[in-house]
């Protein structure tokens, strides 16, 4: 179990590094799926099979498919990669990377200085317990989540509607 945890954690970190550094959108999405699957493996290893299943179905399944669809729709291919290569010069990414590393250091020091001391032995938390919680005392949170999804649906269908842009009408013009 520990081995499973550490191996999938390593895979997740490596895959994520490739996600943020790769030049091709398609490669990045594939690496992201790998990363998510690895995190799902972590969940299984920790003893949260319900969460792991959801991670695979919703994250790696539904949301990533959405990304792939959009990439296909916008036909992001070879020239996009060249553009990315031009944008990802060292002088651009060094500063943010150092800042992120600093934050990581702070986080790590905080975590390690904490007195949690708990050890995860892999006891299962069943879906039944989660379900009982969600449809009992947390019912309001579920309702809120439903509202959120509805709002996202309405927003997406409104924002995603394509109108004719000014430069299509006049040939040239300020983008709105």
């Amino acid at each position: 179990m520990e081995i499973a945890f550490y191996v999938s954690a390593l895979i997740a970190v490596l895959a994520t590094i490739r996600v943020v550094t790769s030049f091709s959108p398609v490669h990045a999405v594939l690496y992201l799926i790998v990363s998510l699957l690895a995190v799902a493996m972590v969940f299984f290893a920790l003893g949260a099979p319900f969460a792991g299943a959801l991670e695979i179905i919703v994250y790696a399944g539904a949301i990533m498919v959405l990304f792939v669809f959009v990439i296909m729709m916008l036909q992001l291919g070879g020239e996009a990669s060249a553009q990315e290569r031009a944008w990802l010069q060292p002088r651009i990414w060094v500063g943010p990377a150092l800042l992120a590393a600093l934050l990581l250091l702070v986080l790590l020091s905080t975590i390690l200085r904490g007195e949690a001391g708990e050890v995860i032995s892999g006891e299962l938390i069943t879906a039944t317990a989660v379900g009982g919680l969600l449809f009992g005392p947390w019912l309001m949170a579920v309702e809120l989540a439903a509202f959120l999804l509805l709002a996202a649906l309405v927003t997406a269908s409104h924002v995603g509607r394509l109108e004719r842009t000014p430069d299509e009408e006049t040939g040239k013009g300020e983008p709105r």
Binding site: T21, P96, I111, V119, G122
Partner: peptide, 26 residues
Amino acid sequence: MNGVPVEHGLILAALLFTLGLAGLMF
């Protein structure tokens, strides 16, 4: 079987988070 210390799980989360943050920034 001693299990995984909770700190290791949190460190993994922190690592992934900062990686994502770095990507967001650059």
